[in-house]
C-alpha cells in the first residue's frame, strides 16, 4: 500500500483501495437497475416467440407507462437534474441530453472503451451503465479534465507524444489512463503484477495490461504508452 492516500486524478477518487470492490457498490447497482433491467435485457433481442414479442412491444411502449425517471447527475462539478427514459445509458445522457459529446460511442457494448469516464474516480464504460444508476454520482468526463487552452497533463502528453490519430478513442484513452494511474497508486494489482500485495509501478507492462480495454484502431499504442509513462513519472520497469 502507498504511504499516502491516493491523490485525486479528478478531484475525488477514494483513498481506500477497497472501495473498488465494495460490495455495497454492487448492491446499489442492483437496486438502481431493477426498474430498468427487464427492458435492457430484452433489448438485446436474445429471445424469440410470443412472450418476447410482447416484451418487445412493452419496451417500445416505453416501459412502465412510458414513464421517465428523475436523476441528478453531477458532471464535471456541475449539477444537472434530468427526466430520462430509464433505458438511457449514462453515455447517451451525456451525449444526447447534455451536449457533452466528448465521450465517444464506438460500440455501445462495452467492447472498445471509447466511452470511458470517471465515476467517483473510478473508470467505467459509460455505455454499459444506465443514467438512472448514477443519481448523485460525481462524474468526470474528458471535458472536465481540461480545455484546449488549459489541458490536463495527460491531455498535453497525448498531444506531445502523438498518442492518437483519428481522435475517436482518445477521450476514452485519456480518462482511462487517469483512472488507471490512480488504481496503481492505490495499490490495486493487475493480471501482470508480480506481487499482488506489493507496491505497484506504472511500468510499460502494467500500463499495457491495464489499458487493454481501450481499443485504438489507428494503433497509437506505442505513443500512448509514452504519454502515460511521462505523466506517471515512473522511471522503473520500462523497456530497454
Amino acid at each position: 500500500m502507498p504511504d499516502e492516500p491516493a491523490p485525486s486524478p479528478t478531484g475525488g477518487p477514494p483513498d481506500d483501495p477497497l472501495f473498488f470492490c465494495d460490495p455495497t457498490t454492487r448492491r446499489v447497482f442492483l437496486t438502481r437497475a431493477a426498474g430498468a433491467s427487464a427492458a435492457v435485457t430484452l433489448g438485446h433481442g436474445l429471445f424469440s416467440g410470443p412472450d418476447a414479442q410482447a416484451a418487445v412491444q412493452a419496451e417500445a411502449g416505453g416501459g412502465e407507462a412510458g414513464g421517465e425517471e428523475e436523476v441528478t447527475l453531477l458532471i464535471n462539478g456541475r449539477q444537472t437534474k434530468l427526466r430520462l427514459d430509464p433505458r438511457v445509458t449514462l453515455l447517451d445522457a451525456m451525449r444526447e441530453h447534455l451536449q457533452l459529446t466528448g465521450s465517444k460511442k464506438g460500440c455501445d457494448h462495452g467492447q472498445c472503451g471509447a466511452c470511458t469516464v470517471l465515476v467517483e474516480g473510478r473508470r467505467i464504460n459509460s455505455c454499459l451503465s444506465l443514467a438512472v444508476m448514477h443519481d448523485g454520482d460525481k462524474i468526470t468526463t474528458i471535458e472536465g479534465l481540461g480545455t484546449p487552452a488549459a489541458m490536463h497533463p495527460m491531455q498535453a502528453a497525448f498531444v506531445k507524444h502523438d498518442g492518437f490519430q483519428c481522435g475517436y478513442c482518445t477521450p476514452g484513452q485519456i480518462c482511462s489512463a487517469v483512472g488507471m494511474l490512480a488504481e496503481i497508486k492505490a495499490g490495486i494489482p493487475s493480471h501482470v503484477s508480480a506481487d499482488l500485495l506489493g507496491e505497484m509501478s506504472a511500468s510499460e507492462e502494467e500500463i499495457r495490461e491495464r489499458m487493454s480495454g481501450n481499443l485504438c484502431r489507428c494503433a497509437a499504442y506505442s505513443n500512448i504508452i509514452a504519454a502515460v509513462r511521462e505523466v506517471s513519472g515512473d522511471k522503473t520497469g520500462g523497456e530497454a
Binding site: 502523438d162 481522435g167 482518445t170
Partner: peptide, 10 residues
C-alpha cells in the same frame, strides 16, 4: 487539431 481532439471538443 490535437488540443481539440484530446479535450473532446472536436
Amino acid at each position: 487539431d490535437g488540443p481539440a481532439k484530446v479535450t473532446g471538443t472536436a
